[in-house]
Amino acid sequence: MKKSTILLFLSFSALCFGQSTSQFVDSIRIVYNIPELSYAVINSKAILEIEALGKHSIELSDAATINDRFHIGSNTKAMTAFIVAKYVEKGKLKWTTKFFDIFPEWKEESNVEYHQITLQDLLSHRARIQPFQGENDPSIPEFKGTKQEKRNSFGKFVLTLNPVDVDTTHKFIYSNAGYTLATMMLERVTKKSWEQLVEKVFHKDLKLDVGFSWPENQKSKDTWGHLFENDKLIPVASTVDYNLDFTEPAGDLNIKLKDYIKFIQFNLDGLEGNNNYLTAKTYQFIHKGIENYSLGWYNIYENGKELSTHSGTVETYYSLVHIDRIQGKAYIIFTNSFNQDTQQGVRLVMRKLKENYGS
């Protein structure tokens, strides 16, 4: 068989394989009533498969595109930890820097049980900080000022609260507020706000189009998140205030799938032992330096596999990312809804992608 014929056959086989996967995924999307679902399978060098399926909203006719933006919720944590890591490499902080080394003037008024917490404790949820995930949160005073000033006031308040108890079952206390405190440390030593640091690292340095808050769907065609109320999905306009004040570094970025792929490819490349924007040593620490939950990633060892995983939602979008650290592949799924059906549909899609690509 001629080389050109072989290449044509392989290309046709890959196309059919991709079509078969997308048909399966779209059937899952429809059965589980997910308005839009985009997914990708990648390695450090290439996109193995990518697709956008469905519509921007259940009430709109415009179809999904690869250029759509999705709010990624708590998958923001890995991006915030990535920014912190860059400035640790620059020598602005150490992973072991104590919070009150940076904010000594707050120590006396803070709960004594927080006096030894470090940057890595905060990013790995080991500081026992109250979670602030929307359920049974302590009442928060009304803070004034810029976003950065409000974060500082919130952080100072959080440090007066009692810590959460840890037991043998719970190895860490997942805390959005802990990411606010870690970000405050970075803001003080860099003299830049988190928003400015996102612009510097992702826009200027890495050329990634990262946005804040909801994708803008009132000025252009883009995704609408969907709440689930009274057993039905309700589209949410980007102008709706969803009250993620003070914990934006833990969960308030939006991004196009292709740009998020590039971010994950930096991580895959680093995990393969290569220096890029961060050093290979830093990537190893981010993903594997701390058991159970490292820095922005769940650190999982099971059934002979090594995984970095995370999901993200503020109950209108849902994203799920699995990095297979042994095979050097990543699986990314973005949706614009959130309920039990969305979660189950995404689990089935993730299982199918892994079956197809050998994880």
Score class of each variant (00 low, 15 high):
240 V>R: 11
29 R>P: 00
226 H>P: 02
159 L>K: 06
164 V>H: 06
190 T>S: 14
81 A>G: 03
6 I>G: 09
309 T>C: 07
181 L>F: 06
64 A>R: 00
177 A>R: 03
154 F>T: 03
311 S>D: 12
244 L>S: 12
310 H>C: 03
196 Q>K: 14
264 I>D: 08
251 G>E: 06
329 K>F: 04
333 I>D: 05
88 V>A: 00
92 K>Y: 14
131 P>G: 05
188 R>K: 15
154 F>G: 05
309 T>A: 11
307 L>G: 02
335 T>F: 01
142 E>M: 11
17 F>G: 04
168 T>I: 10
76 T>D: 03
134 G>H: 08
220 S>T: 15
128 R>D: 08
349 V>W: 02
225 G>F: 03
121 D>T: 01
181 L>C: 02
276 N>A: 11
15 L>F: 14
3 K>I: 15
274 N>W: 07
354 K>L: 10
41 V>P: 01
191 K>A: 14
259 D>F: 08
345 G>W: 01
323 I>S: 06
130 Q>Y: 06
55 K>L: 13
272 E>H: 11
197 L>W: 11
143 F>V: 10
193 S>N: 05
274 N>H: 13
275 N>E: 09
225 G>T: 07
70 F>G: 03
285 F>Q: 11
124 S>Y: 02
348 L>I: 06
179 Y>W: 04
282 T>K: 08
177 A>S: 13
165 D>E: 15
107 K>R: 13
269 D>W: 12
280 A>V: 04
330 A>V: 05
237 A>L: 10
291 E>M: 07
263 F>P: 02
194 W>F: 15
253 L>M: 13
200 K>E: 15
122 L>G: 01
143 F>T: 04
101 D>S: 12
352 K>I: 01
307 L>S: 02
353 L>G: 00
176 N>G: 06
100 F>P: 02
171 K>P: 04
17 F>Y: 14
175 S>Y: 01
94 K>Q: 14
182 A>I: 06
7 L>H: 09
293 Y>M: 00
200 K>Q: 15
169 T>R: 10
216 E>Y: 12
34 I>E: 05
303 N>V: 06
50 I>T: 15
179 Y>G: 01
324 D>Q: 08
22 S>W: 08
38 S>T: 13
265 Q>T: 10
257 L>E: 05
359 S>F: 10
42 I>N: 00
347 R>N: 15
144 K>M: 12
243 N>Y: 14
